[in-house]
Design a protein around this nucleic acid. Sequence first.
DNA 1: GTAGGGTTAG
Length: 700
Amino acid sequence: MAALTTYPPSPAKPITAITTISEFPRNPKTLILQQSRNARDLNQIHAHLIKTRLVHSPAVMENLLESAVILLPNTMGYANSIFRHIDEPDSSAYNVMIRGLIYKKSDHDAIVLFKKMRENSVRPDEFTFPSILKACSRLGALHEGEQIHAQIMKCGFSSNGFIQNTLIHMYARCGELEVARHVFDGISQKDVCTWNSMLAGYAKNENWEEVVKLFREMKKSGTGFDEVTMISVLTACGRLSDLELGQWISEYIEANGLKGNLALITSLIDMYAKCGQVDTARGLFNQMDQRDVIAWSAMISGYSQANRCREALDLFHEMQKTNVEPNEVTMVSVLYSCSVLGALETGKWVHFYIKKKKMKLTVTLGTALVDFYAKCGSIDGSIEVFNKMPLTNVFSWTALIHGLACNGQGKMALEYFQEMREKNIHPNDVTFIGVLSACSHAGLVNEGRKIFNSMSRDFSIEPRIEHYGCMVDILGRAGLIEEAYEFIMNMPTQPNSVVWRTLLASCRAHKNVKIGVESFKQIIMSEPAHSGDYILLSNIYASGGRLEDALRVRNQMKEKGIRKAPGCSLIELDGEIYEFFAEDNICPYSKEVYSATEDMMRQIKSAGYVANVADARLDAEEDDKEASVSHHSEKLAIAFGLIRTPPGTTIRISKNLRVCTDCHNATKIISKVFKREIVVRDRNRFHHFKEGSCSCNDYW
DNA sequence: GTAGGGTTAG
């Protein structure tokens, strides 16, 4: 380094950056980094180094190289040209280049350069391996990682702590948790990074129990832990709903004044939200003095996972007032919220925004879009997005198949399932739920039976209770009530109330009193207080002409104090979501809504509508029953839609319960009288009402 | 000069 202390004076045509230096630092890297601001500076320094022959000093050139890597964004071009001019690059020069490539996320190029280094017989040193292993981790390149591991042993670096820690990380990120653990267990002197690498490895593989278990061991070992440790553990607490440990860490953070760590607080917010403490999470979020896109996304997803989707969208709007730009991850939660709320217009705007910002249509984002359009009853939108996705996986195909099935396009769903098979994408258990419900909607009984039987035989997927439920729906919907009953009785697992309720609904549609009563008995053994079941049974009796029994069931329900869950319907107009509750007259526009509803009911009555008072609430006085039925949330929302949207446009409603018989009947007539297509999403499926009939063929 | 970290889909 002697040459540097006699660093020559500035050239004749001064370079401001250098001439202003009164005393030359001993370390040329400091000099170059401090003085260079852009490519021009670097060029001038480079020229200067040539003049002063310092270009032949590998150490100086490495520092120039490093500056080039850090200062020039998005390109390694200049760094490459410097590297090429180094006479015989040693391992340090290669290290700088490899680090640079990794810094620029060119992991693949880093591995190529490493291979070249070996070809040129340059021995990697202890600093080479951690970097190159990082590239392998990020690429999930297990094969390369293993070869590098062998070289580490050959070079005698296998007890280097840095290298061991990166090896753990590499194996874990490539899914080889046992190998990672083996390396971990073999380390006698474990430092915080050793533990953190293993913890992060378990976390990345979603092995949350092991994260918590290992953290307890870590505490016992006396190593101590840091913020990085807590981030992995908090993530695990969220997934496991382990609020106790999460809170312990939360208190530790508070006590040690660590609230300034953005990543740490974000994982704390995520933990609280996933443990059901969304308001606590929001409190922390509000206290943050800086929030990046991940913090915003975590809070938005927190609301959406807690089923507080309106608040998720409100927060997204708040975010847009800041200068933090949302990313694909943010959009996934936003779209999910739109799909829960049935907010088609808002979601469409989000889709437009995604396109405008040229966001990458990742598999996750694409799948969220496919699911969103399907859940908003716009299946054409789903198909369009799906066809544009550059990459699809089993999630995306499942979303599409399920979406088609729910929207009454069973046959098309099965065609896509066939295509998926041809593309060698392996269906999983969830895919089969979509496929079986497609059979149900399309009335394909034999096809359904075949697919059900093929699950374990051809795909090694054991049917779960949900799949049995789908089979019951297929048989019941087709009117094969006895067979459905037998099917339940012969199930290898204990049928649950959901399965029996499916059969109960079939009995209502096919007027089978005997099995309906039996199904009801089975349900109330485990779930005695579900109002919908009493109503279904009462309707079954009524349709079989047994009005006294129907009334008895209703009274039973009243005696047991089982109240009908309050119905709630949503309609979105101009991106604004309006919420209606049955017989709700406290909302600010209720006067307008009630007069519109009365007008609507008057018009459909003259077209032949007769109220079905069996659907009225129980405590309504006899002569108020008709009014009670006419004030169901769904009718209020439709009436509001009729007066607030242009003639001929589609009205879209989402509701929390199943559609009741009276509303179903009324909506059919409304669609005809007012010449409107009406799409209603109930808690199970879609009803596309058009010209007096419904896509569900009166079975739901 | 080298290692470990936060948000997302069916």
